[in-house]
């Protein structure tokens, strides 16, 4: 590559400015972000404005959407909109906790394996491959069934513990390619320790990549949590979008034609996860100039 890029010096601030320039002009990123933020906002402030408690029974059962009950009510007269806004909170919470824990483990394993190499890499790689092959839902089934998960946070914790392997793999590969670069050599020669080099030199240089990894882990956690909820192993306290689907299925909303019961929660999960994926593609285009001109 003896092209123009070398001739024009590029400092970090300029790169950041350029990324921002493309970010605000990237339709995919902006659309995705808007959807996610709108739903997040609804989940955050919605519960403050909805009087009904999400699981409170009322006499007005099986009502289709009305002015009073925006999303209608369940067979037991629970207000579906109230469940929906509370469920959004749980869904975002499980995404943040699960995705966050998976990202942290994936980063630690990936950085250490990729940077230190040798036997440490061999062992961590083996561990990663093992956890990668075990179907995580099956493990979570067993764990949740025996331990009886009560809170969204604990559910997120266990999801995080099973979701990290692919992230670790990807980060390891990235670290591997950065390890031999000049600036890392320089840091090593000036006596910086492993942890410092990883934190100061390697991680910042793949920060966009790490962020995108977190987004994908977030989406994955939301999906797997909804599956667990649906099987009946969700948090026993509170509401979530997955639990709403489970209840709808369990109490035959389908056969009774109560579409307002099962359409909103599934649509919200799809919207959150889909918007995150699309935003991720947008981010990729922002940070990876090769993909821009399609």
């Amino acid at each position: 590559m003896t092209t123009i890029q070398e001739a024009v010096p590029r400092e970090r601030a300029a790169v950041r400015r350029e990324a921002l320039y493309f970010a605000v002009r990237n339709g995919k990123l902006m659309t995705g972000l808007t959807i996610v933020l709108a739903l997040l906002l609804l989940g955050l402030i919605g519960p403050l404005f909805v009087a009904a408690a999400p699981n409170e029974y009322s006499v007005k059962a099986m009502s289709p959407p009305t002015g009073e009950h925006w999303f209608g009510t369940t067979t037991f007269g629970q207000d579906i909109f109230a469940q929906f806004v509370h469920g959004l909170r749980a869904t975002f919470a499980v995404g943040v906790v699960g995705g966050g824990i998976a990202a942290v483990i994936g980063m630690v394993v990936g950085f250490v394996a990729g940077y230190v190499g040798g036997l440490v890499d061999e062992v961590l790689n083996m561990l990663t491959n093992i956890v990668l092959v075990i179907p995580s839902l099956a493990v979570l089934l067993i764990v949740n069934a025996y331990l009886g998960i009560r809170s969204v946070a604990v559910q997120g914790l266990f999801i995080g513990l099973t979701q990290w392997p692919w992230a670790a793999r990807a980060i390891r590969a990235q670290t591997f390619s950065l390890r031999t670069r000049e600036f890392v050599d320089l840091a090593r020669m000036s006596g910086s320790g492993t942890g410092r080099i990883i934190a100061r030199e390697i991680a910042p240089n793949m920060s966009s990549y790490l962020f995108m990894t977190f987004i994908l882990l977030f989406g994955g956690s939301v999906l797997i949590a909804s599956s667990l909820d649906f099987i009946g192993l969700g948090p026993t306290e509170g509401v979530s979008l997955g639990l709403m689907l489970q209840n709808a299925n369990q109490w035959s909303a389908l056969q009774l034609g109560m579409w307002w019961w099962f359409v909103p929660p599934g649509a919200a999960i799809t919207a959150i996860v889909g918007a995150l994926y699309v935003a991720n593609v947008g981010l990729d285009e922002v940070f990876n100039p090769k993909l821009r001109e399609t």
Binding site: G219, L223, S227, L245, L254, I269, T270, G274
Partner: peptide, 29 residues
Amino acid sequence: DNTVLPVGYVLTAMPYMWLAVLLAWALGV
């Protein structure tokens, strides 16, 4: 690309059981 990509993302973001419920409702019920 402009059709396959969005449709693909919506499909892959769907919880499996939700599409199942929708199909059962539309084509079954």
